[in-house]
Amino acid sequence: MKRGRAADAVKAARQATGMTQQQLSFEIYESREAVSQQENGRYRVQPNISKYFTEKHNNPWVALEAAAEYTGWGPVKLDGEVVDLHRASVAMKTKEELTEALQAIESVCVANHPRAIREYDKQHLEEAILQAIDAIVALTQYVAVICVDYGFSWLKMWQKHRTKLQTKGFIRK
């Protein structure tokens, strides 16, 4: 198996806490070898490691990277050479991406049946989808950076959101 981003995220998260692989293995009830194999990409990062870093260290990045590797889609931590994850930069970029997504969504009519859509409109709809995905990624970065920087629990924020959805009848328990 090719070493993926989730493996790098686990190693970085472990090192940021100052733990050795052996110490992490005691925390998650796995062998040091299992931790090593996940960090080196021989095995996929397991949910218990993602959950550990999210719950105990308020680090959502391992879980985001692992989920994206498992599913083949979804937001990951932006880490390219031109990315600035300072909270002010992330907030500004999120506003920009949301504005672009709203403009793209407003420019397309989805009231017509999908079989009746013209090719021209279909191209605009595809652009709206891509703009919406850009906004989802930006919002994910925003929530993660703000939670980490200000000490809000990533997990508790998502639990509050789920409770709100349940209360409003949008999801079942």
Rank of each mutant, 00 (worst) to 15 (best):
Q38F: 05
K77C: 06
F170M: 09
N58W: 09
Y43M: 06
V143I: 14
I28Y: 09
H86R: 15
V108F: 04
N40Q: 12
R172K: 14
E27M: 14
D79N: 15
V45Q: 03
Q21G: 15
W73T: 04
Q123I: 15
G72V: 15
S107M: 13
T140C: 13
I136H: 01
M1Y: 14
A9V: 07
Q131H: 09
H124L: 14
H161S: 06
S50Y: 03
A67D: 08
A34S: 10
R118I: 02
Y43T: 06
I136R: 01
S89F: 12
V143D: 08
H161I: 05
V76P: 02
V137E: 04
T17V: 11
E55V: 13
V145T: 12
V148N: 04
H113N: 15
L98V: 08
L78K: 13
A101C: 04
S89L: 05
I146P: 04
Q15S: 10
H161F: 03
Y52L: 03
S89H: 13
E55G: 04
V76I: 07
L102K: 11
E33Y: 07
W61M: 06
E65H: 15
Q37F: 08
Y70A: 13
N112Y: 09
N48M: 07
A104T: 11
F53G: 11
Y70M: 09
T167L: 03
A12T: 12
K51R: 12
E65Y: 04
A116C: 05
V82Y: 05
V110E: 08
D84S: 08
V82L: 06
L64H: 09
T167G: 01
Q21D: 10
Y120I: 08
